[in-house]
Structure formats: structure tokens, C-alpha cells
Design a protein around this nucleic acid. Structure first.
Lengths: 233, 233
DNA sequence: GAGTGGTCTAGACCACGGT
DNA sequence: CCGTGGTCTAGACCACTCC
């Protein structure tokens, strides 16, 4: 009589996690099969399945047909990084958000961009530069290129009142994103807009966006400060 | 006869995604209930449930009891950032990995660390400094503090042969992680170890680790270069 | 070939949260 | 109150993969 209350898949996850933590099932061990565990916990196989499936998604277990379920030798840690609109990001801190367009041009995609987005020759992009402010303090400098073939609507949008990110979210939802972070020196351009010394470090985030394999946009966000995210499990 | 083959939950997810993309169900719309969709797709409610549940986890739908399921007004984009051991990170690039301990001390946790980890007064930590090399080129400078109350085994570990991260992974698996990224100037210390000019920018990643609410370790990783991650959906 | 996970079903009960 | 999603069950068939 190990348990009185009937166990839900959450409880079962906890028990399994506990057994991994206390090394009842050390890293690399093979776990009992679903049927065996279902018997042990007195529940349906589907319940065990859900518990183990989620633990596998969370990077703690490895599951293979026929081979069975094992505890991952090197539990994959992963953080969930939310990629909100700048507006949401700023307003979440309680500050008021302000957006300002610096320049907007339609031009042929430069070579480095064509390479990065797998664009054909002579493809046109909208090239934007803009600033985001938090309580009238510089928050982020954004430089962005939008592929017109994928997002034709960008040709007639002036981006004077609405930021490109906010606009794109409603125009082209459900995209895939590549992110790169790096550190750089401010230099004269960023120093000017971000109100920092040219020789100070800035934090950059490069964001490439795809819609079903078609390139949508490339953006480089430059911060004077730092960036924060929190993992779940 | 809209579909010949029977639909699995993956197909259903695709259909729903398509209807959001082509604005059959615009952002903010309320979707039909599970029973209705089950009827439409000719499948069991559980199948619809799984499809919609996963879409909700992926940040595309909002689900509430009684209220029903709606398309998120601002689809939450999130990237999955894997946090591998440095060793794996280096070896994944094909380079050979080398680890080197610089210093190891047991000391009282400094005030800023006590604040960050919610430590009590006089709690002891192991303070480490070490370097990670990729093909004998400096890859990362690591400064780390390990809380002895949570990980007593760290007192007797010398960390001369094995890096603290690799050691902690096998000692204390399944922890929660907080991450912060930022840019900084190298300064004399980092310049020396990372073999860059003192006035060059460096990329820093701060990692705080918890085990069931108990503070495990705080680490600051400093890179001469940049850091990369890719989102899933 | 055989064993394990992957998925689906039909039905049931529960819990939350608008009304 | 009562509708919607949340979860569980018992049973079934399938698909992958190791032997």
C-alpha cells in the first residue's frame, strides 16, 4: 500500500523525477516498460505514456521503440526564451513605450543579406532603422530588412506609427525564428542613438524569421544593457 | 469528402495552423469546441484535445475551461535554448576540448551572491575560476560559486580533472536554471585569459541553478565571441 | 519475429470558471 | 448552474527497431 490516492500523470512524473534524482534510476539506466509501470502505479498505460512522453520532451528521458525508455546520460537542459515584441517587453517593466522611425528605404538586398536569407539576385527588401524608448530613455536600436517577395504588404506600409515587429506579428503570424546573440562595441552610430560612449560594449540580438521556409525578415537589435530570460525545466 | 485518409493529431495541428495563417480564424478568434471539431474531423475528442493542447503549449492558442479555445491575440514566440555542457558545445564543432582549473577556494559567500541566491549569513561556497579551450584556443572563461549546503560533495572535489559543470551534471541532475546575457568590456582579467584586447567587447552568460528551490550554483561564463541558439516554433 | 513505444477510440468523470 | 477543457481508462492496432 504505497499510495492511497490514485495517481495522475503529474504525480507519476514527480515520482519518476524523484527516482532519477535519488539515483534509484541513475543516468543511463533503462526504466521498466510502460505496462510494468502501469501495473505498479495501478493506472492505465496511457497515463504512464503521458508522464514519460512529457519527461522525454523535457529532455530527461530517452524513448525509443523496442529499445525502451532510459534516463538520458546527459540530461539536456534547455531554457525557454520568450521573444516578445519590444513594446510588450518595455511595458512589462512598467515603463512607457515609444517608437520612432529613423529611416525607410526600398533597395536591392545586399550580398551578405542574400547569403543569409538565401535570396535570389535583385530581390527587393525594405530597409528600416528605428529606435525604441522606455520612458524616453533609449532602449533598443533596431535595423531591419523585410523581404518584399514574402511580405508584399511591406511596400505600402510606412512604419511611421507602428514598429516593424508589431506590424509583422499581425501580418505574418506563426513564423520560425533563428536567434544569435553577441557582444560588440557601440561605435559612432550606436553610441549616438543609444546615448552611450562609442567605446562601450553593446548587446546585440540577430533575429532571422522564416515562414514555411520562405525568408521573411532579418533584424539586428542593439541594446545598451543586458537581456534576460528564464528557463522552465 | 474533404479528407480521405484518417487524420492523426499531427494532421489536425497542421490544419488548424493553416486556418490561423490564412485567417480563417484570425488572431483572437474563438475556435469551435473540441466536440464540434471531433465531429468535423471524424475522430475522437482525445485526438482533438492533443492537437489543441500542443498548439497551446507552443503559444499559438489560449485554452480556458468554459471560455473555450481562442487564437492568441499576440502569438507568443519562444525559442528553445539548449544549455549544453561546454565540453559538448566545443566538441560539437569538431574541435578538441581542454579544461583547466585556475583557482579553487572555499569562502564565505560574498554579499552580492547571498542576495542573488537567497543565502543565509556565513554560508560557505566553493569559488572556482577555470578556462575552457577549443583546439587550444581560449573558448570560455568561467567563474563559479557552488553552495556547499546544497552540494556538500563539492568540498572534497578538487575540480582539477573535471569541469564544475560536468561534475555538477552527474552530481545534481534535474535543476532549474536562470539565465542572463549581457555584453561587457574585457578588462585586464578577461583580456589576459581570453587573449583579446582589454578594450574589446566580451559576451557574458550568467547562470543561476536551483534544485527544488535550494540554490545550487551561480556561474558567469565569459566568451570572446558570440553565442548562438535556434528556436523551434 | 517480437517487444516497446506511438497513437487512436469511446466513454466517463472531474474541475474550473463564466453566467 | 452548466459548458468547456482536463484527465483517466480499457482496449486496440500500428510502426519502428533490435535481435
Amino acid at each position: 500500500m504505497q499510495q492511497a490516492k490514485q495517481s495522475g500523470y503529474r504525480d507519476i512524473k514527480e515520482v519518476i523525477l524523484g527516482r532519477v534524482r535519488d539515483k534509484t534510476w541513475p543516468l543511463g539506466t533503462e526504466l521498466p516498460g510502460e505496462v510494468a509501470l502501469a501495473r505498479e502505479f495501478g493506472c492505465a498505460r496511457a497515463t504512464i505514456n503521458r508522464a514519460m512522453r512529457e519527461l522525454a520532451e523535457e529532455g530527461i528521458l530517452d524513448r525509443k521503440r523496442k529499445a525502451g525508455t532510459t534516463v538520458k546520460a546527459t540530461p539536456a537542459r534547455h531554457a525557454k526564451l520568450s521573444v516578445p515584441s519590444v513594446r510588450a517587453e518595455v511595458e512589462a517593466t512598467g515603463a512607457s513605450y515609444r517608437y520612432s522611425l529613423i529611416s525607410r528605404n526600398v533597395e536591392k538586398a545586399p550580398d551578405w543579406l542574400r547569403a543569409r536569407l538565401s535570396l535570389g539576385a535583385d530581390q527587393l527588401v525594405v530597409h528600416l532603422r528605428c529606435m525604441h524608448y522606455a520612458d524616453s530613455a533609449p532602449y533598443q536600436f533596431e535595423e531591419r530588412w523585410i523581404v518584399l517577395d514574402t511580405v508584399p504588404g511591406a511596400e505600402t506600409e510606412g512604419f511611421e506609427a507602428i514598429g516593424p515587429n508589431d506590424w509583422l506579428i499581425s501580418e505574418v503570424p506563426l513564423t520560425n525564428i533563428d536567434l544569435t546573440f553577441s557582444a560588440a562595441l557601440a561605435g559612432p552610430l550606436y553610441a549616438d542613438f543609444l546615448d552611450v560612449a562609442p567605446e562601450s560594449p553593446v548587446f546585440q540580438m540577430n533575429r532571422t524569421t522564416w515562414l514555411d521556409g520562405a525568408p521573411v525578415t532579418f533584424a539586428r537589435m542593439t541594446h545598451p544593457g543586458s537581456y534576460k530570460l528564464r528557463s522552465s525545466l
